[in-house]
């Protein structure tokens, strides 16, 4: 059996007897403390910027702060929220935002999936094509807005060139309020569908090749193979791409501003983000715009909250 020769010399230093000094020294030497500068500094900086900012914004949204001067925190109420929710501008911006969110996200996902499947198998230089398809993603929204402004131009834009060649009357893409939002969605899809393609391609590549081969041996056609076997396995990729796209649709501001170079985007394309920035920086209605921003944030959290919970449950964080 085990020997106990050294029992006596150590019994006086069992856990209870270990001085607080060595426990303190151990704590100070622990990974948690010694790695603190690494995670601590970025964490604090980020927290102040993101969560401090959100909190401050939240506080301002309860005041009546406007124009120059400082916010007055003595009377806090929900006035700005009720005012926003009952204003036509807010409601129409919210509607536009919803159309943008649903239309843009859906089409981007479908087109991205289509492109991914198109390039996944049997195409030479597939990587080169991917690079081209993804290229718009590397451009600033400011740049793409200029390119599409020219594409949508009533007199000499390419779209109208196509339309008139087909024998129709030219369309005022950005000037007609009932078409403008569709035109904006179209341009944004041009920019983003490469992104969804890349996400789907990564998903496709993680599916082992034998599944294609097994389906081939079973006699399934390529299209059936994709529809029945491959696409159902892309759920995770769809969810994460959809979250990114929806959050983008909520905060999209730059593209709309850069199309016209002013606070008010083309008629029929005003969304919450543009309304918020306009109210704040053009009219100085700080509290009012802070309230809109808070609601925008809550909507974004409504998208990412369930997503994060799902990721956490999956253990994939």
């Amino acid at each position: 059996m085990a020997t106990h020769d050294n029992t006596e010399q150590v019994t006086d230093t069992t856990d209870e007897a270990v001085g607080w000094e060595s426990k303190l020294r151990y704590f100070l030497n622990s990974d948690f403390v010694r790695s603190a500068p690494y995670w601590g500094i970025p964490f604090v900086l980020m927290s102040i910027a993101v969560y401090g900012g959100i909190g401050y914004n939240f506080a301002i949204s309860f005041t009546d702060y406007e124009g120059l001067g400082t916010p007055d925190y003595s009377t806090l109420d929900l006035e700005m929220y009720t005012q926003a929710l009952s204003s036509d501008a807010f409601i129409s911006a919210a509607q536009n935002n919803l159309v943008l969110l649903v239309g843009f996200t859906t089409i981007c996902l479908v087109l991205g999936l289509f492109l991914a499947v198109l390039l996944d198998h049997g195409i030479r230089f597939s990587e080169k094509f991917q690079t081209v398809y993804l290229l718009p993603m590397s451009l600033s929204f400011v740049v793409t807005a200029q390119l599409w402004l020219w594409m949508f131009n009533v007199e000499s834009g390419i779209l109208n060139l196509v339309v008139t060649t087909l024998g129709f009357n030219p369309v005022d893409w950005l000037g007609n309020p009932s078409i403008a939002l569709g035109a904006v969605i179209f341009a944004l899809i041009w920019q983003f569908s490469g992104y969804t393609m890349v996400v789907y391609l990564a998903g496709l590549q993680s599916i082992p090749d034998d599944q294609f081969e097994a389906a081939r041996v079973d006699g399934a056609s390529i299209i059936r193979t994709y529809l029945r076997i491959i696409v159902p396995q892309l759920k995770e990729a769809s969810v994460s791409a959809a979250v990114v796209l929806m959050v983008f649709a909520l905060k999209a501001f730059t593209f709309l501003y850069a199309l016209v170079g002013r606070y008010r985007p083309p008629n029929g394309t005003d969304i919450l983000a543009t309304l918020m920035v306009r109210r704040a920086f053009k009219f100085g209605e700080w509290a009012y715009s802070a309230a809109i921003a808070t609601m925008l944030l809550i909507m974004a959290l409504g998208v990412i909250g369930p997503y994060l919970y799902y990721q956490y449950k999956q253990g994939s964080l």
């Binding site: 050294n6 010399q9 150590v10 230093t13 069992t14 856990d15 270990v18 060595s22 426990k23 020294r25 151990y26 030497n29 622990s30």
Partner: peptide
């Protein structure tokens, strides 16, 4: 809980 000794020295609080 419990204790670890190496060479008679208490190790729990050593990195």
């Amino acid at each position: 809980s419990g204790d670890i000794y190496i060479g008679g020295d208490h190790m729990n609080y050593r990195v």
